[in-house]
Design a protein around this nucleic acid. Structure first.
Length: 257
DNA sequence: ATGGCTTTATCGTAAAGA
């Protein structure tokens, strides 16, 4: 069973790319981020015609997450995280699908740092950690997949110097991510590619893609019951090179069924 | 580069992304 995460950077602008990706790779489950559209304008019909059921949490203009499943509709468990009732940003959606608990995560970027956006990012990470602990306690196969906006290690970025002041690799961001791993979650790409040099994002600017100036910020965190079934984890880089591509590439895990 | 692209919201220009 293949479970993918894909920050599509606008589901309307990216719809042909999304449908093409679904039809070419046929993931069993797909977590999407940065829909940049409201609930009312989510293209459910096009996705259904490609053979996928979906649940989504939209937001006009930016943010927005969804969970797709081939041949069925995910059963929603939760939308949003506890801890900040005034938080209206659509960044978290969780479902049961095909025997696995799946969360689609769009973690705040946090730039510029320091500042309120960075503070929000760090608070959001602790709220995520609290929810992750509840899921963990259920001892079922679970996958927390999405755009974490965290570069976990120096080996996960093309240039430490170029990104030194970015919120994505501040010590506080890394420490919060590491706390999740220390709680027992497995970073699937890291476990299969420990040496690093694997990117999931290339900026639109300054020829980042042709220069291969990327970094790894899209992650799939596996509970022990899911990690026990891990066969492979990869990034489909080629999709980043297509016409009108997202700046992120699809990232996935294969689990023994 | 307090922004070199890109998308969205809206139809000239600003916000947001990472």
């Amino acid at each position: 069973m293949r479970i993918a995460t894909f920050n599509i950077n606008g589901i309307k602008a990216r719809l042909p790319r999304l449908i093409e990706w679904l039809e070419e790779t046929r993931p069993d489950i797909a977590c999407l981020q940065e829909l940049k559209t409201s609930d009312e304008t989510f293209p459910a019909k096009d996705i259904e015609q490609a053979g996928y059921g979906a649940i989504w949490l939209g937001q006009k203009g930016f943010n927005g997450v969804a969970i797709l499943a081939r041949g069925e509709t995910p059963v929603e468990v939760r939308r949003g995280l506890d801890g900040e009732p005034e938080d209206e940003q659509s960044r978290y959606l969780e479902a049961d699908v095909k025997g696995v608990r799946v969360a689609s995560i769009y973690l705040p970027n946090g730039n510029p740092q320091p500042g309120p956006k960075f503070d929000y990012k760090l608070r959001w990470m602790e709220r995520l950690r609290a929810r992750a602990a509840q899921i963990w306690a259920e001892e079922a196969p679970a996958i927390l997949a999405g755009d974490y906006n965290v570069i976990p290690r120096d080996a996960d970025v093309f240039s430490v110097k170029a990104m030194a002041d970015d919120a994505l690799m501040q010590p506080e961001s890394r420490a919060a991510y590491r706390r999740l791993l220390n709680d027992g979650w497995t970073d699937a790409i890291l476990s299969r590619h420990p040496a690093g040099g694997v990117w999931t994002y290339w900026d639109y600017q300054a020829g980042a893609w042709p220069r291969d100036a990327g970094f790894r910020i899209d992650h799939l965190l596996l509970s022990p019951a899911a990690a026990d079934r891990l066969i492979d984890a990869q990034v489909d880089c080629a999709f980043r090179g297509r016409e009108k591509a997202s700046d992120h590439a699809p990232t996935w895990v294969e689990l023994r069924s």
